[in-house]
Amino acid sequence: MGFRTGISERQRRLGEELRRVRDAAGLPALEIGQAIGVKGPAISHIEAGRMGLSLERLNIWLDLCAVTDAEYRAGLTTLSQSNGKGWWIEYRPHVVPSALDLAEFEANATTLDAYETLLIPGLLQTKGYSEVIQGYNEKKVEFRHLRQKLLTGENTSPFRAVIHEAALHMMYGGPTVMREQLDHLIEMSNLPNVTIQILPFDCTTYASTETPFMLIHGPHTRLGTVLLEHPHGSTFMGDPEAVATFDRKFDRLRALALPPLSVATPASSSAHRDSLGLIQHIRYKVQGR
């Protein structure tokens, strides 16, 4: 087993999970190393994602730590045996590593939940809007729109988005781009796997709404991931307590947001009583610019 020259977030996450189950079992690294036939220092490299683990050794590790949950073991097996190759690999020269990690996580997600404050979620962006956000970088825009096949391809993933009303008022690209973007939100809400809600300005309850995030639900509740984006890059968090905290936060935001967009249900007379009515109201104002 040699050292990896680059560690993907999937590989790092597997190592974290193996450390968690070892700590929960109260087993020292030396004992695990003896059981799988490696020297003690190698365990720290495996848990850091710097070294891989064969399926045989993975099963010995999990058996020794008394991991009996079949779904959790299957999820760890997938993390261990995946080669990380997918359509996103072709874009390695053009996007940052965290973008590749996100695409890989999304490809294996069971559900995706996103909250945005000043931007339309990437999976819901039009090409014109993405061009502005990505600085008219053709490859980055292309990459973002290939990610959107998660919502419209053959094996679609459920996607729930809560978008702060502020994002709808940002005139990125000008009125024409924003009109198209608002129309696209309505169009995407027609998909059976997409749920879009707007958190309005007139919400009177504070729910820590300033931080955008994405919840990537894995094949097991213990394998969920939170993505936080900030000026210095992206941070993936897999700690179960952190994931549970953001899961509760997203449920809270959904409860505070307006009812989901639904073109099947006529918009209410008040523009601020449902998400569709609010978007249509803002679109009318944008059209007048």
Rank of each mutant, 00 (worst) to 15 (best):
Y136W: 10
I198F: 09
L199R: 04
H145Q: 11
F236Q: 00
H217I: 01
T152M: 08
S234Q: 14
G218C: 00
L146V: 15
R254K: 11
I133D: 03
H217F: 03
P212R: 10
L256Y: 09
Q148S: 11
I186M: 13
Y206P: 04
A257G: 07
V177F: 06
E180K: 04
I216C: 01
T176R: 04
N155V: 06
G173R: 08
G218D: 02
L185C: 04
D247W: 00
G135L: 10
F143E: 07
L223Q: 13
K249S: 14
T209Y: 07
S208G: 07
P219E: 14
K249L: 15
A161V: 14
K249F: 07
Q181Y: 05
M171H: 15
L168D: 09
R254A: 10
P260E: 13
G174K: 06
E165H: 03
R252K: 04
P259I: 10
I133S: 02
T209N: 12
I196M: 06
P219A: 15
R252L: 10
M237L: 15
T204G: 08
G173C: 14
M237T: 10
F246E: 02
T176W: 02
M214L: 13
L182D: 03
R222L: 15
T176D: 14
Q148G: 11
P175A: 14
F246Q: 01
R179V: 15
K149H: 11
A161Q: 07
G135E: 03
F250I: 12
R252H: 03
V162N: 04
H232A: 15
A257W: 05
D202T: 08
M170A: 09
I163S: 14
M214Q: 04
K249N: 03
A255C: 04
F201R: 05
N137Y: 03
T156D: 03
R144F: 02
M171C: 12
N190G: 13
Q148D: 11
N155D: 11
D247S: 00
L168C: 07
P192R: 11
